[in-house]
Simulated scan of single mutants.
Amino acid sequence: MRALARRLVVRPTKRLGQNFVHDANTVRRIVRLAELGPEDVVLEIGPGLGSLTLALLPVAAAVLAVEIDPVLAGALPDTVAERAPTLAGRLSVHAGDALRLRPGDVAAGREPTAVVANLPYNVGVPVLLHVLEQLPSVRTGLVMIQSEVVDRLAAPPGGREYGAPSAKLAWYAEARRAGPVPRSVFWPVPGVDSALLAVRRRAQPATTASRERVFAVVDAAFAQRRKTLRGALAGLAGSPSAAEQLLRAAGVDPNTRAERLSIEDFARIAAAESH
């Protein structure tokens, strides 16, 4: 990997959240835990120098790689052709920002069914939520991000780790922590611990409110999470008394706090607000 980076004149940057996985056992473990089948089309965000890509290609029907670094995006097909020439036809590369990914950006006829990625720490959560929103064909996923972020995303209602990201992810999918990843498998070695998050798409809450409105309620509730919902949603509703009326209409105790509510609860509040 270092030789390839030197050849490409690439230096990992914090700006792009580049920490490349160099350990073969780690990428094999990720692929195994992703539980991919031969019909799966995998979306890989941030393939970097291609270590995970090379592990994904033998087990999937295709890999759609999205890479923001134009040098790395241009080099990935050559790396695959050199290291796995018989599998090169399974790879498609999209040079661009995953946060701007749209359905039309992926190869025609190859809708992704799974996302497997070493996500940049600085944009991991918004990228995952964006992918699940824009690509409904993605049914499962296994992503590597900062360990404490994994704990927050996988947290159920009721605890301190549960927050707005947890609730928003629950709109799309069930999530669980799938294991730690040691710092030593990365180049350069990051200053934080990493972990794997497994997601499986679920039916979205039945509600008359839009996703945008539900997420606005989530954001308002957690913006002042020390307050009861009566106070936290006062700005959204217009006043504490209006917030209390809204919450009672939704069947939610005005004296509870945001971390006690499921995404279904937030959806009921948003639906009551629109009536």
Rank of each mutant, 00 (worst) to 15 (best):
Leu99Asn: 10
Glu148Pro: 05
Leu64Gly: 14
Arg177Lys: 14
Ala195Leu: 00
His130Arg: 05
Ala178Pro: 05
Glu133His: 14
Asp193Tyr: 12
Tyr162Glu: 08
Glu67Ser: 07
Ala108Trp: 12
Ala61Glu: 15
Thr113Glu: 14
Ala164Pro: 02
Ala170Arg: 10
Pro136Ala: 03
Val115Arg: 07
Pro126Cys: 00
Glu82Arg: 15
Ala98Leu: 09
Val143Arg: 04
Ala114Lys: 08
Leu64Met: 15
Ala88Gly: 15
Ile145His: 10
Ser92Tyr: 14
Val80Arg: 08
Val138Tyr: 12
Gly96Pro: 03
Leu64Ala: 13
Val71Trp: 13
Ala65Asp: 03
Asp78Phe: 09
Arg83Ala: 15
Gly96Ile: 06
Gly124Ile: 04
Leu135Val: 00
Leu142Glu: 00
Thr79Asn: 14
Val106Ser: 10
Val181Gln: 01
Ala155Arg: 05
Pro190Gln: 04
Pro103Cys: 01
Ala154Asp: 06
Ala117Glu: 07
Ser92Arg: 15
Leu132Val: 00
Pro156Leu: 07
Ala170His: 05
Gln146His: 02
Val106Gly: 06
Leu196Gln: 07
Thr79Cys: 13
Ala195Gln: 04
Ala61Lys: 15
Val115Phe: 11
Asp97His: 01
His94Ser: 15
Pro120Tyr: 01
Asn118His: 10
His130Gln: 04
Glu82Asn: 10
Arg152Gln: 07
Ala108Val: 12
Leu128His: 14
Ala98Tyr: 09
Gly96Cys: 08
Arg83Cys: 12
Ala108Met: 07
Arg160Asp: 11
Pro103Tyr: 07
Val131Trp: 09
Leu101His: 04
Pro112Tyr: 09
Arg152Leu: 06
Pro157Lys: 11
Ala178Arg: 03
Ala167Arg: 02
Gly74Glu: 09
Val143Ala: 06
Gln134Cys: 12
Thr86His: 13
Gly159Phe: 08
Val185Trp: 02
Arg183Lys: 12
Val93His: 09
Pro77Glu: 09
Ala170Thr: 10
Glu161Ile: 08
Lys168Pro: 05
Pro180Tyr: 08
Val63Pro: 01
Val123Arg: 04
Pro120Gln: 00
Thr140Asp: 15
Glu67Met: 05
Leu142Trp: 01
Asp105Phe: 11
Phe186Ser: 03
Gly109Glu: 11
Ala84Glu: 14
Tyr172Cys: 11
Asp78Lys: 11
Gly109Gln: 11
Gly74Trp: 11
Leu142Pro: 04
Val63His: 09
Gly141Phe: 02
Pro182Lys: 06
Asp97Ile: 03
Ala98Glu: 05
Leu196Glu: 05
Ala195Val: 02
Leu76Thr: 09
Pro126Glu: 05
Trp171Cys: 01
Ala95Pro: 06
Arg102Asp: 12
His130Lys: 00
Val181Arg: 05
Arg100Val: 07
Pro165Ala: 00
Val123Thr: 14
Leu129Val: 07
Glu82Cys: 08
Leu101Gly: 07
Asn122Pro: 13
Glu148Ser: 03
Leu119Phe: 04
Trp171Tyr: 14
Asp69Asn: 09
Leu153Asn: 09
Pro126Met: 04
Glu67Arg: 06
Arg100Asn: 13
Leu142Asn: 01
Leu87Ser: 11
Val150Asn: 02
Ser147His: 13
Gly96Asn: 04
Pro112Thr: 00
Gly104Tyr: 06
Trp187Gln: 12
Ala167Leu: 06
Pro188Asp: 01
Ser147Glu: 13
Ala95Arg: 08
Leu64Glu: 15
Gly191Ser: 10
Gln134Met: 14
Arg152Cys: 03
Pro156Glu: 06
Gly141Asn: 01
Val185Leu: 00
